[in-house]
Design a protein around this nucleic acid. Structure first.
Lengths: 112, 112
DNA sequence: GCCACTGTTTCTACATAATAGATAAAATGC
DNA sequence: GCATTTTATCTATTATGTAGAAACAGTGGC
């Protein structure tokens, strides 16, 4: 496998959030999606640096939108997952599936 | 969530390998298990530093065994997953499940 | 027009995790 | 004793994760 092909665990979550949010995947919203689904309250800085890194790897692209007519409605930068990004997600999913094959979740506290 | 509670992606794989291997989880074997199931050929150094980290976090314990009567049969250091390790695996699994809920794999190249 | 406020993005610095590659150790067989 | 095998340890570097503060761009009240 080529190097740089594996997703870090937080990269993985961010990528999945973007997939879920479709057209509405901008930084703050990604952060909320992850918080809502995982219970982790990551900071917005963590999300953006990860988004930047994913963009550098060309697993996502971004586009600056128009400002919305709401109080504080600064223009949003929305993200999309690229073909390579989808491939990375599918590959990661496959690896995890093979590693967990035959295991029954939740795993019992005492193994063996 | 308490800090240091999340599993890095490679930590996750190593922990799963130990669960799979039960009584036979020592460094070289963990490496082979991961290679066989994911296609990644990680170096042995990568595996051991990760095992050390997991031990430092008390997600695994290790025990030095007896030498086996084979050519090159040096004593093996075998690893077991602790209760906290199992909890970390179950928690991580849950997070991922909620993040992927409703998504059909493999994801299509073009999203949306 | 200025100010407070809101939702968003950007910047900077540091901590933790991943990875490689070389070296050392402990056993066997000849 | 020496070559060979299997395993473990050490050292260094890069990549990822995380926090927190600052900057931006808009709204609305007065």
């Amino acid at each position: 496998m080529a190097k740089g092909d594996t997703l870090g665990e937080f990269e993985h979550l961010v990528l999945l959030a973007i997939v879920r949010l479709r057209d509405d995947a901008y930084g703050m919203r990604v952060r909320r999606e992850i918080a809502a689904r995982t219970g982790r309250d990551v900071t917005i800085g963590a999300v953006y640096t990860t988004l930047e890194r994913l963009a550098a790897k060309e697993l996502v692209t971004s586009e600056l939108g128009d400002a919305t007519p709401e109080r504080g409605g600064r223009a949003k930068r929305t993200f999309r997952v690229t073909g390579a990004g989808v491939q990375a997600l599918n590959r990661t999913r496959g690896e995890m599936a093979r590693m967990t094959q035959g295991l029954a979740y939740p795993l019992p506290e005492v193994i063996g």
